[in-house]
């Protein structure tokens, strides 16, 4: 197999669970956008230009309640700020990458592609092109499903085959693949506990950033205490 063929095959294979999870959510977004009075073209354009699920839902509902451009932009910025941490973490796998590549790659950094690519980079046999393919295949699925939702209204009945659980199941799987030792399990439990606690008291989704920062720092401190000066944690 040529290297490009292999990259394409492996990229698509890694991306298909994301596509499956995107489909119901993209459809739901399309339906909502249509109900809010957006045309099919406008709906698809938002999925192409923004490509960030939760903030698109929020954006559409703010648009229909007549919010200002400034208010929508600020809210979107805050909702999507967590990508900052993901790109920062991905940068460790993309050392010395040409700048034009990064422009293309950054566009597709989402919760889902970030998690899939992180796992693949760690397992080896992964390169930036395969990662880029994952990002863009996921993007195509997102755009197509939001257009499908906008065109069809609701042709998949809600609750069909547990489709509402697809995204959560994917995150559970991705979380499990990250647990490569006790330190990671401890960090996960710390982050999970903190995020539940914060989510109960802080409105919005900033709890994700705060819980992650504190838990990763806590995990790092634990690893230092266990092996002071040690190069790598187990």
């Amino acid at each position: 197999m040529s290297p490009w063929r292999e990259r394409l095959t492996m990229g698509i294979r890694a991306a298909w669970p994301i596509c499956m999870a995107y489909f119901p959510i993209g459809m739901a977004f399309g339906v909502l956008a249509q109900k809010a009075g957006l045309s099919v073209f406008q709906t698809g354009a938002m999925s192409v230009v923004v490509f960030a699920g939760s903030s698109q839902f929020i954006g559409v509902s703010m648009l229909s309640s007549g919010a200002s451009l400034m208010a929508i932009a600020v809210t979107t910025f805050v909702v999507n700020l967590r990508h900052l941490l993901m790109s920062w973490s991905l940068a460790t796998h993309l050392r010395k990458t040409p700048t034009p590549f990064l422009f293309l790659f950054a566009y597709g950094v989402t919760d889902e592609s970030f998690a899939v690519n992180t796992v693949q980079f760690r397992e080896g046999n992964w390169d930036r092109w395969k990662a880029l393919i994952v990002n863009h295949v996921a993007n195509i699925a997102w755009v197509c499903s939001s257009i499908a939702g906008a065109v069809s209204g609701q042709f998949i009945p809600s609750g069909f085959l547990g489709i509402d659980y697809a995204m959560i199941a994917m995150f559970i799987g991705l979380l499990v693949f990250q647990l490569r030792g006790r330190l990671y399990v401890m960090t996960a439990l710390l982050s999970g506990g903190l995020s539940v606690a914060f989510s109960l008291v802080v409105p919005g989704n900033s709890y994700v950033i705060f819980a992650s920062l504190i838990a990763a720092t806590g995990g790092y401190v634990i690893s230092r205490l266990r092996s002071p000066g040690g190069p790598k944690h187990a």
């Binding site: 967590r82 900052l84 941490l85 993901m86 790109s87 920062w88 973490s89 991905l90 940068a91 460790t92 993309l94 050392r95 010395k96 990458t97 700048t99 990064l102 790659f105 950054a106 950094v109 919760d111 970030f114 998690a115 992180t118 995150f171 991705l174 979380l175 990250q178 647990l179 330190l183 990671y184 960090t187 996960a188 439990l189 710390l190 982050s191 999970g192 903190l194 995020s195 709890y207 994700v208 819980a211 992650s212 920062l213 838990a215 990763a216 720092t217 995990g219 790092y220 690893s223 190069p231 790598k232 944690h233």
Partner: peptide, 29 residues
């Protein structure tokens, strides 16, 4: 972050800390 941090070397402690970010984010989500 991709632009800034892919071009220059990061100190070891930062790489170790960033290594814990994915599991923390997924759990927090």
């Amino acid at each position: 972050p991709l632009f800034v941090f892919s071009q220059k070397a990061m100190p070891g402690w930062l790489v170790e800390w960033l290594d814990l970010i994915p599991v923390a984010i997924l759990s927090a989500l």
